[in-house]
């Protein structure tokens, strides 16, 4: 018997794997999505979403991709998994993702092919959108210049391609590699950690989607989770998931602060509680959280 059966849950409520069903439309995520859609719908060209580790950037990027109706948008998301790619490679991938059949080997021909494809999309009355997740990995000037070039593909009075970067704060450094590109950022939005109220709603929402009772965690437990996770959604998920497992092992039906403290101790979070709180308030300095999450993943 798993804890799912113990708590009458249909699925894991606090998995960190991407799952659209668990998309929690918090006020700031909703605001971010509205703004990013505005950039696309008004063909502004380039927008950037900055957020700390685990704040929901990827979730938001996938949510946006779902929102982009294929009848109105030719859209695609590129997830950067390493930083050693070259401009030709990314150009070819973008061209393919936007529907260029058999992209040529040389860069100029691919550019021509992409331009014609963009014209075709435009004549269909649709908009071309590329979402780049983990954009902080685009760490070379050449790459930034390539994106600038792509943003220059336009017809009179209208840009043919919109690009949205999703990344950690380091993306600012990447943009600075090519100042003209930095100047082209039409919108920048920062995701912050969740407040105690939003954390409560977040936990209850996920429990509800999983088919369970929304009050499995008492108020003191949620308060403790918020403090230990620093309002970071991914960390909240990890703590909550462990709490459910621990409660199942203890054969209890409700999670209280004692269980949360126990789990946080096991995760090595108790000693770093205060420093964590301080860390999450400083959105520019998230190294500590990241290393903590890395440690958790290792465990």
């Amino acid at each position: 018997m798993s804890y799912l059966a113990h708590f009458n849950l249909e699925r894991e409520p606090f998995s960190n794997a991407p799952d659209a069903r668990f998309y929690f439309d918090s006020d700031q995520h909703s605001q971010a999505l509205v703004r990013l859609m505005y950039v696309v719908n008004s063909n502004k060209g380039l927008a950037v979403l900055v957020g700390g580790v685990g704040t929901g950037k990827t979730t938001l990027a996938r949510r946006m991709l779902e929102t982009l109706d294929e009848s109105k948008y030719e859209s695609s998301m590129l997830v950067m998994v390493h930083s050693s790619i070259n401009p030709e490679w990314i150009l070819t991938r973008i061209a393919m993702q936007l529907g260029v059949q058999d992209p040529a080997a040389d860069r100029l021909t691919v550019l021509k092919q992409l331009y014609e494809r963009l014209l075709e999309i435009e004549s269909e009355g649709r908009r071309a959108v590329i979402l780049i997740d983990e954009a902080q990995m685009l760490q070379s000037r050449e790459l930034m210049e390539e994106f600038r070039g792509l943003l220059n593909l336009e017809i009179p009075g209208k840009k043919l391609l919109n690009i949205i970067f999703f990344g950690l704060a380091e993306i600012e450094d990447c943009l600075r590699l090519d100042e003209p590109l930095a100047q082209r950022v039409a919108l920048k939005y920062h995701l912050k950690s969740l407040s105690i109220e939003i954390t409560t709603s977040y936990i209850q929402y996920r429990l509800n989607v999983a088919g369970g009772k929304v009050d499995l965690f008492d108020t003191a437990a949620i308060d403790a989770i918020h403090r230990f996770a620093g309002g970071v959604p991914r960390l909240i998920n990890t703590i909550c998931d462990n709490c459910l497992f621990e409660s199942f092992m203890l054969k209890v039906d409700k999670i209280d602060a004692k269980i949360v403290h126990s789990v946080a101790g096991d995760l090595g979070l108790s000693a770093t509680k205060m420093s964590l709180e301080e860390a999450v308030t400083e959105t520019s300095d998230l190294d500590e959280i990241e290393s903590m999450l890395d440690q958790l993943e290792i465990k």
Partner: peptide
């Protein structure tokens, strides 16, 4: 599957 196709890992 079309949604999946729209996501590419580079």
């Amino acid at each position: 599957s079309s949604k999946k196709d729209r996501v590419s890992y580079v």
